[in-house]
Amino acid sequence: MKSSCWVFIIAFIIAIDVYGLSSSLVNSQADSCSSNLNLNGSVSFDTSSLRCLPVWDGQGFILRYSQTASNIWSFVLSAPDTNSYIAIGFSTNGAMVGSSAVVGWVDPSNVGTVKQYHLGGTSPSLVSPDQGSLQFVSGSTAIVSQSSRLYMAFQLQTNQPESRLLYSVGQGGVLPSAPNFALSEHQAKVSTTINYGTGQSASGGSPYGRLRRSHGVLNMLGWGILMIIGAMVARYLKEKDPIWFYFHISIQSFGFLLGVVGVICGFVLNDRLNANVTAHKGLGIFILVLGCLQVMAFLARPNKMSKWRKYWNWYHHNVGRILFIFAVANIFYGIHLGGEGHGWSVGYGVVLAVLFISTFVLEVRIWIRK
């Protein structure tokens, strides 16, 4: 593996990671459950007796609610005003796809808007405004900006709201607008559960969390780490013939098996979540096909003395390089889609950095010898 190829891979990785990297500092001291809620008559229903609980400390989200009639529930969601939308979703299983969300924002002219969205998929085109299963009490929706915080109020007609709640905050300065009110991708999100009787809220975790982690870890280890290490063995341990060959085959075979199982986990996860991850899925299938071609190439490997051997080497090396590039890119893209946070991206990036530095040192060693 030539060092120029590795430079291209690392540059590609950094571009993806930096593009997806964002952080925010949240000041939630302007509102707390110990403070009195005063919305100055901006809300049509009584907010003085609402139960209050912090629901997302990382973003300063506070939820107030109460059952005001047998089939009417009142809600006020408070969050820092970062010139973005805030949202609360009601889900049957904790998944975003298939849920209904209440989304609100205040534009630069101080006009507030609250809308219901049906989350039909993960792409913005599948998030439909003014659709969903929630039934609002007429005239109950409102959102105001006060003391650098947003207060979104609404009432639902239901005997019991869903206990799996989703919260999200949009990207700063990106607000839905007429005529289609398309909702841009959120900056951050969290899934929680709530017990309306006791007033306790806890992180709900991701649906099918174990399957998600298995899919990510297996693909990361198989396609994104072991395959690269196997290629390094083939390039830098050639003088240890034939040990290098057996090491190379063993590592690549193990990485391929882990990758195949990871892809299978991905298909199962996609079927259960019914998520719209067409690009990620397509890249995964492409990577799997490249891996299968490498296995077939090994089985059809010509003798060293054959005139076809140089063409086989060219094919084998370049298909492997293409596989590495797309595998690394798709791993970072999958971390982004899964909303696993920057820890996974940073951790995998550190592993790649170690591999890159090792490759650079070994390349220099080869150059010095020549």
Rank of each mutant, 00 (worst) to 15 (best):
N318Y: 15
Q146A: 06
W6S: 01
A153N: 04
F254S: 12
V319K: 05
F75D: 01
Q29R: 13
S138R: 12
Y151T: 02
R272M: 12
L283N: 09
F360M: 11
P108A: 07
G282D: 09
N71H: 08
V260L: 13
S91G: 04
G230K: 01
K189C: 08
I322A: 10
A30V: 06
S99E: 05
G216R: 06
K189S: 14
Q200L: 08
W344R: 02
A95T: 09
F45D: 00
E340A: 13
L119S: 02
G339E: 06
V295Y: 09
A182V: 14
P108W: 01
I9K: 04
V328L: 15
L290H: 09
V18D: 00
V328K: 01
P124V: 07
A188R: 10
P54H: 05
S84I: 06
S214E: 11
V7R: 12
V26D: 12
R272S: 10
N159M: 11
S3G: 08
N71Y: 10
Q157P: 01
Q252V: 07
L323A: 07
Q160A: 11
A234L: 10
N276C: 09
I62S: 02
H118Y: 15
T92K: 15
T141W: 02
N93I: 06
S163Y: 01
G205D: 07
L39Y: 11
H316P: 05
H248I: 00
I322N: 02
